[in-house]
């Protein structure tokens, strides 16, 4: 089967998707990165290999904060930032989209689209308040499974007010409310509203939010957050069917277009990547006071790539 592969290596999840030659989704994988992107990618490819015996990958795209690592590992045709990838995926399924809200594991962004072109975007700055990992932590603390978070929050009739500007303050505020005796669902709903308020006043500050609005990323699964967005924007929010892997879908689409329009052959190194033995070793270069941390990727004992230096002294000598 002819497929193109998209890989999104995020801080929390590593997603892989397969699109067929009509850009339809064949398979999606949502795996936990668990601090080890190489392992996650290998695991993902292993699963795909097992499930599809006659896989013929003709294009590969990588995105996410681990995109460069992923591209070296699998041999990507295109390496793109998350913003462009998310926009590409959204426009494929919703050509009328004008705004994309995306909340992932550790970042949140807003993308403004007009006439099928990205015209503006913003990402959260230093603070990761209100992103997936924070919600995860709070759910864990309250002892509720994360997939029930939204459902429980929506039961609330009287949400409490929680300060959402900073994750540390939000947590102490939540603890305070819980000790006062507020019901869990009221606190959860209050948290959803606080996070949305924070998103709209920080990340989306000054941006013109026009319909059609898409909500992507892992957090879009949380119906409580979705509802809070709808209430505060007074507008319907669309959550794409594959909202959790839209970054990977975007990377696959960009790779598809790149390879097909240029009639190239793919750089893909093959599914064997899943069964290779990779090792990373980092060294500190002492050629100059910058003391760059050089990361070396070995496949068995063979050096595959080096990166992390500012001057190019190490990254330019690749043994391949």
């Amino acid at each position: 089967m002819q497929c193109c592969l998209g890989i999104d290596v995020g801080s929390v999840s590593t997603n892989l998707v397969l699109l067929d030659d009509k850009k339809r989704l064949v398979k999606k994988l949502y795996l936990s990165t668990a601090g080890n992107p190489i392992k996650a990618i290998k695991k993902g490819l292993g699963i795909l290999q097992q499930e599809f015996k006659d896989l013929d990958i003709f294009a590969v795209g990588t995105t996410g904060s681990g995109r460069h690592l992923a591209s070296i590992l699998v041999g990507a045709d295109i390496v793109k930032n998350e913003i462009t990838a998310h926009a590409a995926a959204a426009l494929e399924y919703y050509p009328q989209a004008q705004t994309i809200l995306e909340i992932g594991g550790q970042d949140s962004k807003i993308i403004v689209i007009r006439n099928k072109t990205v015209v503006d975007f913003a990402m959260n700055t230093v603070c990761a308040a209100g992103t997936g990992s924070f919600l995860d932590r709070q759910a864990q603390r309250l002892g509720i499974p994360i997939d029930k978070f939204g459902e429980i929050a929506l039961k609330s009739k009287n949400p409490t007010r929680i300060a959402g500007r900073c994750a540390v303050f939000a947590e102490s505020d939540m603890i305070h409310k819980q000790q006062m005796g507020h019901a869990t669902e009221d606190i959860l709903r209050g948290l959803c509203e606080a996070l949305v308020r924070n998103f709209l006043s920080n990340v989306a500050k000054g941006k013109e939010i026009r319909p059609l609005i898409l909500f992507q990323g892992g957090v879009a699964a949380n119906t409580g957050i979705r509802k809070a967005f709808e209430e505060q924007l007074q507008c319907k929010i669309h959550v794409p069917e594959n909202h959790d892997v839209m970054g990977a879908v975007g990377a696959a689409i960009l790779a598809f277009n790149h390879v097909v329009s240029r009639q190239k052959t793919t750089n893909f190194l093959g599914m064997d990547v899943a069964f290779q033995n990779y090792k990373v070793k980092s060294i500190e270069c002492n050629g100059c006071p910058n003391a760059c941390e050089i990361i070396q990727l070995f496949s068995d004992e063979k050096l595959m790539a080096r990166w992390g230096d500012r001057c190019g002294k190490w990254s330019s000598i690749i043994a391949v």
Binding site: S65, K80, N81, E82, I83, T84, T117, V118, V119, D120, F121, M123, T125
Partner: peptide, 30 residues
Amino acid sequence: PFLNLNIDEHAGEAGFNTRLEAFLDVLEGM
């Protein structure tokens, strides 16, 4: 398009590059 980049003692280039690359994509697209 307007891009505001704040620089501080942060040594990680990833965040900086993501924003810059996305911004260049926007410019090209437009």
